[in-house]
Nucleic acid binder design. Structure first.
Lengths: 222, 222
DNA sequence: AACAATCTTAAAATTTCCTTAAAAGATTTT
DNA sequence: AAAATCTTTTAAGGAAATTTTAAGATTGTT
Protein backbone atom coordinates (compact mmCIF):
# COMPACT_ATOMS: atom_id res chain seq x y z
CA UNK A 1 0.00 0.00 0.00
CA UNK A 2 1.38 3.34 -1.05
CA UNK A 3 0.86 6.57 0.88
CA UNK A 4 1.75 10.16 0.01
CA UNK A 5 2.40 12.54 2.89
CA UNK A 6 2.18 16.24 2.05
CA UNK A 7 3.60 18.07 5.02
CA UNK A 8 6.12 20.89 5.36
CA UNK A 9 7.22 20.30 8.94
CA UNK A 10 10.10 17.85 8.74
CA UNK A 11 9.45 16.57 12.23
CA UNK A 12 5.93 15.50 11.53
CA UNK A 13 6.62 14.08 8.10
CA UNK A 14 9.53 12.02 9.43
CA UNK A 15 7.47 10.80 12.30
CA UNK A 16 4.73 9.77 9.90
CA UNK A 17 7.09 8.22 7.38
CA UNK A 18 8.85 6.09 9.99
CA UNK A 19 5.68 5.05 11.71
CA UNK A 20 3.86 4.15 8.52
CA UNK A 21 6.81 2.29 7.09
CA UNK A 22 6.91 0.18 10.21
CA UNK A 23 3.32 -0.65 9.42
CA UNK A 24 4.51 -1.88 6.03
CA UNK A 25 3.25 1.05 3.99
CA UNK A 26 5.40 2.56 1.25
CA UNK A 27 5.64 6.26 1.97
CA UNK A 28 6.57 9.26 -0.16
CA UNK A 29 6.87 12.72 1.35
CA UNK A 30 6.25 16.06 -0.35
CA UNK A 31 7.35 19.13 1.58
CA UNK A 32 5.00 21.58 -0.10
CA UNK A 33 1.74 21.65 -2.02
CA UNK A 34 3.28 22.00 -5.44
CA UNK A 35 5.43 18.90 -5.03
CA UNK A 36 2.48 17.07 -3.53
CA UNK A 37 0.36 17.72 -6.59
CA UNK A 38 3.20 16.71 -8.91
CA UNK A 39 3.84 13.46 -7.08
CA UNK A 40 0.16 12.60 -7.00
CA UNK A 41 0.03 13.02 -10.77
CA UNK A 42 3.11 10.95 -11.45
CA UNK A 43 2.46 8.09 -9.05
CA UNK A 44 -0.54 6.09 -8.02
CA UNK A 45 -1.18 6.27 -4.30
CA UNK A 46 -3.62 4.31 -2.22
CA UNK A 47 -4.05 7.19 0.18
CA UNK A 48 -2.91 10.79 0.72
CA UNK A 49 -2.27 12.53 4.04
CA UNK A 50 -2.52 16.25 3.53
CA UNK A 51 -1.54 19.04 5.89
CA UNK A 52 -4.04 21.86 6.07
CA UNK A 53 -1.48 24.62 6.55
CA UNK A 54 1.12 24.51 3.82
CA UNK A 55 3.48 27.20 2.56
CA UNK A 56 2.54 28.39 -0.92
CA UNK A 57 -0.40 26.43 -2.22
CA UNK A 58 -2.83 25.72 0.63
CA UNK A 59 -3.90 22.23 1.59
CA UNK A 60 -7.43 22.89 0.40
CA UNK A 61 -6.15 23.95 -2.99
CA UNK A 62 -3.91 20.88 -3.23
CA UNK A 63 -6.92 18.75 -2.46
CA UNK A 64 -8.96 20.36 -5.22
CA UNK A 65 -6.19 19.93 -7.74
CA UNK A 66 -5.72 16.30 -6.93
CA UNK A 67 -9.45 15.70 -7.13
CA UNK A 68 -9.57 17.19 -10.61
CA UNK A 69 -7.40 14.41 -11.90
CA UNK A 70 -8.05 11.60 -9.47
CA UNK A 71 -11.50 11.31 -8.03
CA UNK A 72 -11.11 8.14 -6.04
CA UNK A 73 -7.92 8.28 -3.93
CA UNK A 74 -8.81 8.74 -0.24
CA UNK A 75 -7.51 12.00 1.23
CA UNK A 76 -7.16 12.63 4.95
CA UNK A 77 -6.52 16.15 6.20
CA UNK A 78 -4.13 16.75 9.07
CA UNK A 79 -5.37 19.88 10.69
CA UNK A 80 -4.96 22.02 13.77
CA UNK A 81 -8.40 23.43 13.08
CA UNK A 82 -11.44 21.69 14.34
CA UNK A 83 -14.41 23.95 13.82
CA UNK A 84 -17.34 22.61 11.93
CA UNK A 85 -17.06 25.12 9.14
CA UNK A 86 -13.42 24.30 8.45
CA UNK A 87 -14.23 20.64 8.38
CA UNK A 88 -17.11 21.15 6.00
CA UNK A 89 -14.78 23.19 3.84
CA UNK A 90 -12.29 20.38 3.70
CA UNK A 91 -14.85 17.75 2.98
CA UNK A 92 -16.36 19.98 0.30
CA UNK A 93 -12.99 20.23 -1.34
CA UNK A 94 -13.03 16.46 -1.68
CA UNK A 95 -11.39 15.12 1.47
CA UNK A 96 -12.65 11.86 2.89
CA UNK A 97 -11.69 12.47 6.49
CA UNK A 98 -9.65 14.74 8.67
CA UNK A 99 -7.73 14.34 11.90
CA UNK A 100 -6.93 17.04 14.38
CA UNK A 101 -3.35 17.70 15.46
CA UNK A 102 -1.92 16.63 17.75
CA UNK A 103 -3.20 13.14 17.16
CA UNK A 104 -2.35 9.73 18.49
CA UNK A 105 -0.55 7.72 15.86
CA UNK A 106 -2.81 4.76 16.56
CA UNK A 107 -5.84 6.86 15.79
CA UNK A 108 -4.42 8.02 12.51
CA UNK A 109 -3.70 4.41 11.66
CA UNK A 110 -7.27 3.47 12.44
CA UNK A 111 -8.59 6.20 10.15
CA UNK A 112 -6.23 5.17 7.40
CA UNK A 113 -7.53 1.64 7.63
CA UNK A 114 -11.10 2.84 7.44
CA UNK A 115 -10.30 4.59 4.18
CA UNK A 116 -8.32 1.72 2.74
CA UNK A 117 -10.82 -0.97 3.44
CA UNK A 118 -13.74 0.55 1.57
CA UNK A 119 -11.72 0.41 -1.58
CA UNK A 120 -11.49 -3.24 -2.42
CA UNK A 121 -13.74 -5.78 -0.86
CA UNK A 122 -10.77 -7.46 0.80
CA UNK A 123 -11.01 -7.76 4.52
CA UNK A 124 -8.23 -6.62 6.76
CA UNK A 125 -7.29 -9.46 9.06
CA UNK A 126 -4.59 -10.50 11.49
CA UNK A 127 -3.86 -14.13 12.25
CA UNK A 128 -1.85 -16.02 14.77
CA UNK A 129 -2.16 -19.73 15.46
CA UNK A 130 -5.84 -20.45 15.99
CA UNK A 131 -6.80 -16.79 16.42
CA UNK A 132 -8.13 -14.62 13.65
CA UNK A 133 -8.99 -10.92 13.98
CA UNK A 134 -11.00 -9.05 11.42
CA UNK A 135 -10.00 -5.43 11.77
CA UNK A 136 -12.82 -4.18 9.61
CA UNK A 137 -15.70 -5.90 11.32
CA UNK A 138 -13.95 -6.03 14.71
CA UNK A 139 -14.90 -9.68 15.02
CA UNK A 140 -12.53 -12.26 16.48
CA UNK A 141 -12.49 -16.00 15.90
CA UNK A 142 -10.80 -18.82 17.80
CA UNK A 143 -10.80 -22.06 15.85
CA UNK A 144 -13.34 -20.39 13.56
CA UNK A 145 -15.69 -19.86 16.45
CA UNK A 146 -16.49 -16.26 17.20
CA UNK A 147 -15.66 -14.78 20.61
CA UNK A 148 -16.80 -11.41 21.87
CA UNK A 149 -14.16 -8.89 22.93
CA UNK A 150 -14.58 -5.46 24.44
CA UNK A 151 -12.76 -2.56 22.77
CA UNK A 152 -9.82 -2.64 25.16
CA UNK A 153 -9.49 -6.38 24.88
CA UNK A 154 -9.56 -6.01 21.13
CA UNK A 155 -6.80 -3.45 20.94
CA UNK A 156 -4.64 -5.29 23.43
CA UNK A 157 -4.93 -8.46 21.37
CA UNK A 158 -4.28 -6.49 18.20
CA UNK A 159 -1.14 -5.01 19.70
CA UNK A 160 0.13 -8.39 20.86
CA UNK A 161 -0.46 -10.01 17.49
CA UNK A 162 1.07 -7.15 15.54
CA UNK A 163 4.15 -7.61 17.70
CA UNK A 164 4.19 -11.37 17.55
CA UNK A 165 7.59 -12.85 18.18
CA UNK A 166 8.63 -9.85 20.24
CA UNK A 167 8.23 -9.29 23.95
CA UNK A 168 5.77 -6.51 24.69
CA UNK A 169 6.80 -4.74 27.87
CA UNK A 170 4.24 -3.29 30.20
CA UNK A 171 5.50 0.15 29.33
CA UNK A 172 4.97 -0.35 25.61
CA UNK A 173 1.56 -1.86 26.18
CA UNK A 174 0.44 0.99 28.43
CA UNK A 175 1.76 3.48 25.89
CA UNK A 176 0.22 1.92 22.81
CA UNK A 177 -3.02 0.42 24.03
CA UNK A 178 -3.90 2.85 26.80
CA UNK A 179 -2.04 5.83 25.35
CA UNK A 180 -0.65 6.77 28.73
CA UNK A 181 2.85 8.17 28.65
CA UNK A 182 3.96 7.69 32.20
CA UNK A 183 4.78 4.91 34.54
CA UNK A 184 2.00 3.87 36.77
CA UNK A 185 1.46 1.21 39.31
CA UNK A 186 -1.82 0.11 37.88
CA UNK A 187 -2.60 -3.52 37.30
CA UNK A 188 -5.02 -3.08 34.41
CA UNK A 189 -2.68 -4.92 32.12
CA UNK A 190 -2.65 -8.01 34.31
CA UNK A 191 -6.41 -7.94 34.49
CA UNK A 192 -6.83 -7.60 30.75
CA UNK A 193 -4.31 -10.30 29.99
CA UNK A 194 -6.38 -12.47 32.27
CA UNK A 195 -9.60 -11.53 30.42
CA UNK A 196 -8.00 -12.32 27.08
CA UNK A 197 -6.56 -15.61 28.21
CA UNK A 198 -9.93 -16.77 29.43
CA UNK A 199 -11.65 -15.83 26.22
CA UNK A 200 -8.95 -17.19 23.93
CA UNK A 201 -8.79 -20.55 25.64
CA UNK A 202 -10.06 -23.19 23.32
CA UNK A 203 -10.84 -26.71 24.43
CA UNK A 204 -7.19 -27.74 24.25
CA UNK A 205 -6.72 -25.37 27.16
CA UNK A 206 -3.74 -23.50 25.82
CA UNK A 207 -3.64 -19.82 25.13
CA UNK A 208 -0.83 -18.30 23.20
CA UNK A 209 -0.12 -15.36 25.45
CA UNK A 210 3.10 -16.19 27.23
CA UNK A 211 4.42 -14.38 30.26
CA UNK A 212 8.06 -13.37 30.25
CA UNK A 213 8.52 -12.78 33.93
CA UNK A 214 10.02 -9.42 34.76
CA UNK A 215 9.74 -8.29 31.18
CA UNK A 216 6.29 -8.51 29.68
CA UNK A 217 4.15 -10.68 27.44
CA UNK A 218 4.67 -12.29 24.07
CA UNK A 219 2.59 -14.16 21.52
CA UNK A 220 3.90 -16.57 18.95
CA UNK A 221 2.70 -19.68 17.16
CA UNK A 222 3.64 -23.19 18.23
CA UNK B 1 28.56 2.88 17.06
CA UNK B 2 28.76 6.60 17.58
CA UNK B 3 26.50 8.55 19.92
CA UNK B 4 26.11 12.29 20.48
CA UNK B 5 24.95 13.44 23.90
CA UNK B 6 23.54 16.97 24.08
CA UNK B 7 23.23 17.80 27.76
CA UNK B 8 24.24 20.81 29.83
CA UNK B 9 24.41 19.21 33.26
CA UNK B 10 27.94 17.92 33.62
CA UNK B 11 26.91 15.24 36.09
CA UNK B 12 24.46 13.64 33.75
CA UNK B 13 26.60 13.93 30.64
CA UNK B 14 29.57 12.35 32.40
CA UNK B 15 27.43 9.58 33.73
CA UNK B 16 26.10 8.92 30.23
CA UNK B 17 29.49 9.18 28.55
CA UNK B 18 31.11 6.74 30.95
CA UNK B 19 28.26 4.29 30.90
CA UNK B 20 27.92 4.29 27.14
CA UNK B 21 31.63 4.00 26.57
CA UNK B 22 31.69 0.95 28.76
CA UNK B 23 29.07 -0.44 26.42
CA UNK B 24 31.53 0.06 23.60
CA UNK B 25 29.89 3.14 22.12
CA UNK B 26 31.97 6.11 20.98
CA UNK B 27 30.52 9.15 22.72
CA UNK B 28 30.75 12.88 22.03
CA UNK B 29 29.24 15.41 24.41
CA UNK B 30 27.86 18.85 23.55
CA UNK B 31 27.09 21.11 26.51
CA UNK B 32 24.55 23.29 24.72
CA UNK B 33 22.21 23.22 21.76
CA UNK B 34 24.39 25.25 19.45
CA UNK B 35 27.36 22.93 19.84
CA UNK B 36 25.08 19.96 19.51
CA UNK B 37 23.80 21.14 16.15
CA UNK B 38 27.34 21.90 14.96
CA UNK B 39 28.66 18.51 15.96
CA UNK B 40 25.74 16.74 14.35
CA UNK B 41 26.51 18.53 11.10
CA UNK B 42 30.21 17.78 11.16
CA UNK B 43 30.09 14.16 12.26
CA UNK B 44 27.95 11.20 11.43
CA UNK B 45 26.27 9.75 14.50
CA UNK B 46 24.31 6.55 14.81
CA UNK B 47 22.12 8.05 17.50
CA UNK B 48 21.57 11.31 19.38
CA UNK B 49 20.54 11.74 23.02
CA UNK B 50 19.00 15.14 23.48
CA UNK B 51 18.12 16.91 26.70
CA UNK B 52 14.76 18.68 26.63
CA UNK B 53 15.82 21.63 28.77
CA UNK B 54 18.92 23.29 27.39
CA UNK B 55 20.31 26.77 27.93
CA UNK B 56 19.98 28.92 24.81
CA UNK B 57 18.54 26.87 21.97
CA UNK B 58 15.88 24.51 23.33
CA UNK B 59 16.03 20.78 22.83
CA UNK B 60 13.00 20.88 20.55
CA UNK B 61 14.66 23.48 18.37
CA UNK B 62 17.88 21.47 18.24
CA UNK B 63 15.84 18.49 17.16
CA UNK B 64 14.21 20.46 14.35
CA UNK B 65 17.53 21.79 13.14
CA UNK B 66 19.12 18.38 13.09
CA UNK B 67 16.12 16.94 11.28
CA UNK B 68 16.41 19.58 8.58
CA UNK B 69 19.75 18.17 7.55
CA UNK B 70 19.59 14.60 8.69
CA UNK B 71 16.26 12.87 8.50
CA UNK B 72 17.27 9.39 9.52
CA UNK B 73 19.44 9.54 12.65
CA UNK B 74 17.44 8.29 15.65
CA UNK B 75 16.90 10.96 18.32
CA UNK B 76 15.94 10.16 21.89
CA UNK B 77 14.77 12.94 24.19
CA UNK B 78 15.81 13.01 27.83
CA UNK B 79 13.02 14.82 29.56
CA UNK B 80 11.68 15.61 32.98
CA UNK B 81 8.32 16.36 31.44
CA UNK B 82 5.84 13.59 31.03
CA UNK B 83 2.54 15.00 29.90
CA UNK B 84 1.03 13.70 26.73
CA UNK B 85 1.16 17.02 24.94
CA UNK B 86 4.86 17.49 25.64
CA UNK B 87 5.55 14.06 24.30
CA UNK B 88 3.57 14.68 21.16
CA UNK B 89 5.45 17.93 20.74
CA UNK B 90 8.73 16.13 20.92
CA UNK B 91 7.70 13.45 18.49
CA UNK B 92 6.30 16.10 16.16
CA UNK B 93 9.67 17.79 16.17
CA UNK B 94 11.12 14.58 14.82
CA UNK B 95 12.22 12.61 17.85
CA UNK B 96 12.00 8.84 17.73
CA UNK B 97 11.59 8.21 21.42
CA UNK B 98 11.88 9.89 24.76
CA UNK B 99 12.84 8.79 28.25
CA UNK B 100 11.78 10.42 31.47
CA UNK B 101 14.38 11.53 34.00
CA UNK B 102 15.40 10.09 36.28
CA UNK B 103 15.88 6.89 34.33
CA UNK B 104 17.69 3.67 34.98
CA UNK B 105 20.73 3.37 32.78
CA UNK B 106 19.65 -0.07 31.67
CA UNK B 107 16.35 1.25 30.44
CA UNK B 108 18.05 3.92 28.41
CA UNK B 109 20.28 1.24 26.96
CA UNK B 110 17.26 -0.85 26.03
CA UNK B 111 15.69 2.08 24.22
CA UNK B 112 18.93 2.82 22.42
CA UNK B 113 19.05 -0.75 21.24
CA UNK B 114 15.48 -0.55 19.99
CA UNK B 115 16.46 2.40 17.83
CA UNK B 116 19.65 0.81 16.59
CA UNK B 117 18.04 -2.50 15.86
CA UNK B 118 17.65 -3.50 12.27
CA UNK B 119 14.31 -2.30 11.06
CA UNK B 120 12.90 -5.39 9.35
CA UNK B 121 11.47 -8.37 11.08
CA UNK B 122 14.98 -9.59 11.74
CA UNK B 123 15.43 -11.00 15.17
CA UNK B 124 18.00 -9.58 17.47
CA UNK B 125 20.28 -12.37 18.69
CA UNK B 126 23.55 -12.86 20.51
CA UNK B 127 25.68 -15.96 20.05
CA UNK B 128 28.64 -17.49 21.74
CA UNK B 129 29.82 -21.05 21.22
CA UNK B 130 26.79 -23.29 21.74
CA UNK B 131 24.70 -20.56 23.36
CA UNK B 132 22.19 -18.45 21.49
CA UNK B 133 20.13 -15.64 23.01
CA UNK B 134 17.13 -14.13 21.27
CA UNK B 135 16.72 -10.66 22.71
CA UNK B 136 13.29 -10.15 21.18
CA UNK B 137 11.65 -13.28 22.48
CA UNK B 138 13.91 -13.52 25.54
CA UNK B 139 14.48 -17.18 24.76
CA UNK B 140 17.85 -18.88 25.21
CA UNK B 141 19.13 -22.00 23.52
CA UNK B 142 22.04 -24.30 24.31
CA UNK B 143 22.85 -26.64 21.46
CA UNK B 144 19.49 -25.59 19.99
CA UNK B 145 17.68 -26.79 23.06
CA UNK B 146 15.77 -24.14 24.94
CA UNK B 147 16.66 -23.41 28.55
CA UNK B 148 14.64 -21.22 30.88
CA UNK B 149 16.37 -18.28 32.53
CA UNK B 150 15.07 -15.83 35.10
CA UNK B 151 15.37 -12.11 34.31
CA UNK B 152 18.55 -11.67 36.33
CA UNK B 153 20.12 -14.75 34.85
CA UNK B 154 19.18 -13.47 31.42
CA UNK B 155 20.76 -10.07 31.84
CA UNK B 156 23.86 -11.47 33.48
CA UNK B 157 24.36 -13.82 30.55
CA UNK B 158 23.64 -11.01 28.13
CA UNK B 159 26.26 -8.87 29.80
CA UNK B 160 28.85 -11.63 29.75
CA UNK B 161 28.26 -12.40 26.10
CA UNK B 162 28.26 -8.76 25.03
CA UNK B 163 31.65 -8.53 26.71
CA UNK B 164 32.97 -11.81 25.41
CA UNK B 165 36.72 -11.99 25.38
CA UNK B 166 36.94 -9.36 28.11
CA UNK B 167 37.11 -9.97 31.83
CA UNK B 168 34.02 -8.71 33.62
CA UNK B 169 34.88 -7.52 37.09
CA UNK B 170 32.47 -7.87 39.94
CA UNK B 171 32.14 -4.13 40.12
CA UNK B 172 31.16 -3.82 36.46
CA UNK B 173 28.74 -6.69 36.78
CA UNK B 174 27.07 -5.25 39.87
CA UNK B 175 26.80 -1.89 38.14
CA UNK B 176 25.44 -3.13 34.86
CA UNK B 177 23.31 -6.06 35.77
CA UNK B 178 22.13 -5.00 39.21
CA UNK B 179 22.31 -1.26 38.54
CA UNK B 180 23.93 -0.65 41.91
CA UNK B 181 26.56 2.03 41.95
CA UNK B 182 28.43 1.20 45.09
CA UNK B 183 30.53 -1.62 46.39
CA UNK B 184 28.82 -4.12 48.53
CA UNK B 185 29.85 -7.28 50.20
CA UNK B 186 27.10 -9.35 48.71
CA UNK B 187 27.71 -12.68 47.10
CA UNK B 188 24.80 -12.58 44.66
CA UNK B 189 27.13 -12.67 41.74
CA UNK B 190 28.72 -15.92 42.84
CA UNK B 191 25.30 -17.40 43.28
CA UNK B 192 24.09 -16.31 39.89
CA UNK B 193 27.22 -17.44 38.12
CA UNK B 194 26.54 -20.78 39.70
CA UNK B 195 22.92 -20.75 38.49
CA UNK B 196 24.04 -19.95 34.97
CA UNK B 197 26.75 -22.57 34.89
CA UNK B 198 24.28 -25.23 35.89
CA UNK B 199 21.78 -24.23 33.27
CA UNK B 200 24.32 -23.76 30.50
CA UNK B 201 25.98 -27.11 31.08
CA UNK B 202 25.38 -29.35 28.13
CA UNK B 203 26.13 -33.06 28.19
CA UNK B 204 29.82 -32.49 27.48
CA UNK B 205 29.92 -30.92 30.92
CA UNK B 206 31.69 -27.75 30.00
CA UNK B 207 30.30 -24.30 30.46
CA UNK B 208 31.98 -21.32 28.97
CA UNK B 209 32.01 -19.05 31.97
CA UNK B 210 35.56 -18.96 33.24
CA UNK B 211 36.69 -17.60 36.58
CA UNK B 212 39.64 -15.25 36.65
CA UNK B 213 40.61 -15.45 40.25
CA UNK B 214 40.85 -12.07 41.99
CA UNK B 215 39.49 -10.28 38.93
CA UNK B 216 36.17 -11.51 37.68
CA UNK B 217 34.61 -13.72 35.01
CA UNK B 218 35.02 -14.10 31.29
CA UNK B 219 33.31 -15.91 28.45
CA UNK B 220 34.84 -16.86 25.13
CA UNK B 221 34.45 -19.57 22.54
CA UNK B 222 36.70 -22.65 22.45
C1' DA C 1 49.30 -25.28 56.51
C1' DA C 2 47.04 -20.95 56.52
C1' DC C 3 44.60 -17.69 54.25
C1' DA C 4 41.57 -15.72 50.95
C1' DA C 5 38.63 -16.23 47.18
C1' DT C 6 35.16 -18.75 45.16
C1' DC C 7 31.61 -22.35 45.02
C1' DT C 8 27.51 -24.62 46.63
C1' DT C 9 23.40 -25.14 49.04
C1' DA C 10 19.32 -24.17 51.47
C1' DA C 11 16.26 -21.23 53.54
C1' DA C 12 14.47 -16.44 54.10
C1' DA C 13 12.92 -12.34 51.96
C1' DT C 14 11.06 -10.12 48.29
C1' DT C 15 8.91 -9.35 43.99
C1' DT C 16 5.93 -10.39 40.34
C1' DC C 17 2.03 -12.19 38.57
C1' DC C 18 -2.59 -14.17 38.79
C1' DT C 19 -7.18 -14.11 40.25
C1' DT C 20 -11.23 -12.19 42.17
C1' DA C 21 -14.55 -9.07 43.54
C1' DA C 22 -16.27 -4.84 43.73
C1' DA C 23 -16.25 0.15 42.57
C1' DA C 24 -16.40 3.53 39.03
C1' DG C 25 -17.43 4.98 34.54
C1' DA C 26 -19.90 4.56 29.96
C1' DT C 27 -23.45 3.32 27.21
C1' DT C 28 -27.90 1.70 26.12
C1' DT C 29 -32.59 0.79 27.21
C1' DT C 30 -36.80 1.76 29.39
C1' DA D 1 -34.20 11.00 33.61
C1' DA D 2 -33.70 6.72 35.75
C1' DA D 3 -32.57 1.99 35.39
C1' DA D 4 -30.11 -1.62 33.49
C1' DT D 5 -26.20 -3.35 31.23
C1' DC D 6 -21.67 -3.48 29.79
C1' DT D 7 -16.84 -1.93 30.16
C1' DT D 8 -12.93 -0.35 32.55
C1' DT D 9 -10.26 0.38 36.59
C1' DT D 10 -8.85 -0.32 41.31
C1' DA D 11 -7.59 -2.99 45.13
C1' DA D 12 -6.25 -6.86 47.72
C1' DG D 13 -5.11 -11.66 48.94
C1' DG D 14 -2.61 -15.46 47.67
C1' DA D 15 0.42 -18.37 44.86
C1' DA D 16 4.47 -18.92 42.61
C1' DA D 17 8.78 -17.62 41.03
C1' DT D 18 12.84 -14.87 41.74
C1' DT D 19 16.34 -12.76 44.36
C1' DT D 20 19.11 -12.29 48.30
C1' DT D 21 21.32 -13.74 52.47
C1' DA D 22 24.12 -16.55 55.03
C1' DA D 23 26.98 -20.25 56.27
C1' DG D 24 29.76 -24.24 55.41
C1' DA D 25 32.58 -26.62 51.78
C1' DT D 26 35.98 -26.37 48.37
C1' DT D 27 39.67 -24.68 45.74
C1' DG D 28 43.82 -22.14 44.71
C1' DT D 29 47.87 -19.42 46.23
C1' DT D 30 51.66 -18.13 49.08
Amino acid sequence: MRILVVEDEKGISNFLKDGLEEEAFAVDVAADGKKGIELSFVNEYDLILLDWMLPGVSGIEVCRQIRKINSSVPIIFLTAKDTVSDTVYGLDAGANDYIKKPFRFEELLARIRVQLRTKDGEQNTLKLANVEMNLDTHRVFVNSKEIMLTPKEFSLLEFLIRNKGKVCTRTRIIEHVWDMHFDSDTSVIDVYINFLRKKLNDESGKSFIHTIRGVGYIMHDE
